[in-house]
């Protein structure tokens, strides 16, 4: 029972952590709240859905969907952020909100309001049993893929010059530019990586819910938001930690609370968000020292 609980928290938490990491990347470097972030999951879902009839193997479809997610993430920068970056925080927030609405309604207009089935390889839903734990294969894959992504991500941020430049930009954007590091390179890389992480997480998310509809991005967006506020809006470690904590809270509620109280779960998690913003706005893990909005 306890082991089952651990596996459940880890598999959910790994997904949440990936989502949160993708959101915090852009916020950490550019101090921009990306309300259109959840729509990358919409892009993933519809991309796979639209490739359904094609003769390609599933992994190719998923790969294409992830590329689409990266493309759309960079596109978000060009449409919603770049033209208004000089203006107020509010302006940037509203443009990303508008862009999210635009994508949702484009899906509504061009495809359908009804949920569409997203094909998934059948082995993902097979159950495996070990040490008294019964869990679908996709949960184990989620854990595995997430830890792999985190290792690659941390190595990239630590070892590559671009990774260093991104970390430096998160501390002092202007100083990195004064060292000859192009601002656009850093920004586009941040959005591309955000799209990649959301793409991978989104594909895993799709394997769980198996269908896509215009409002599909809201839940991942909220998850990423709550997790980053809890963990620390400016720290990548914080975002990952926040993802696991949120999964722990959600899962514990599922295990412990009766149905009629469970429906107030969101009240609780969003109250935590407000409390943290009030008491410890930097979240559990503090980000890099300074951070002036660019």
């Amino acid at each position: 029972m306890f082991l089952q609980y651990i596996v459940d928290v880890l598999s959910l938490g790994s997904l949440y952590a990936l989502f949160a990491l993708g959101l915090v990347l852009v916020y950490g470097i550019l101090k921009l709240v990306n309300f259109a972030y959840g729509e990358l999951v919409l892009v993933i879902g519809y991309s796979i859905f639209l490739l359904k009839g094609s003769p390609f193997p599933w992994f190719f479809m998923a790969g294409t969907a992830i590329v689409m997610s990266i493309v759309f993430s960079i596109f978000t920068d060009y449409v919603a952020f770049r033209p208004v970056r000089e203006k107020s925080v509010t302006a940037v927030l509203i443009t990303s909100f508008a862009f999210a609405t635009l994508l949702q309604n484009a899906a509504l207009l061009l495809i359908s309001a009804k949920p569409k089935n997203v094909p998934m390889p059948s082995f993902l839903s097979d159950s495996v049993q070990f040490l008294g734990v019964i869990t679908p294969v996709r949960n184990l894959i989620s854990i595995f893929v997430t830890f792999l992504c985190l290792i690659i991500f941390y190595q990239f941020m630590k070892r590559s010059t671009l990774g260093l430049a991104m970390r430096a930009a998160a501390t002092n954007f202007n100083m990195t530019r004064m060292l000859g590091i192009p601002a656009n390179l850093v920004i586009t890389s941040a959005f591309a990586m955000s799209g990649l992480l959301a793409g991978i997480a989104g594909t895993l998310w799709m394997s769980k819910i198996a269908n896509v509809f215009p409002g599909v991005g809201l839940e991942p967006l909220l998850i990423a938001f709550i997790a980053t506020v809890i963990g620390g809006m400016r720290s990548v470690h914080g975002a990952v930690l926040g993802g696991f904590i949120l999964a722990f809270i959600d899962m514990s509620f599922n295990y412990l609370l009766p149905q009629d109280i469970l429906k107030f779960r969101d009240v609780f998690t969003f109250s935590i968000v407000i409390l943290i913003l009030l008491i410890r706005p930097q979240g559990l893990v503090k980000g890099p020292a300074t951070g002036i909005r660019t």
Binding site: L164, R167, A168, T171, N172, N174, M175, R177, M178, L179, G180, I181, P182, A183, P288, A289
Partner: peptide
Amino acid sequence: FSPEKILTLGIATVPENRDIFPDL
């Protein structure tokens, strides 16, 4: 010119407060 362009021309800056990257 943008700051990155100016650096590539051969102008390097040590700003007030040094602005080193404290986490690196």
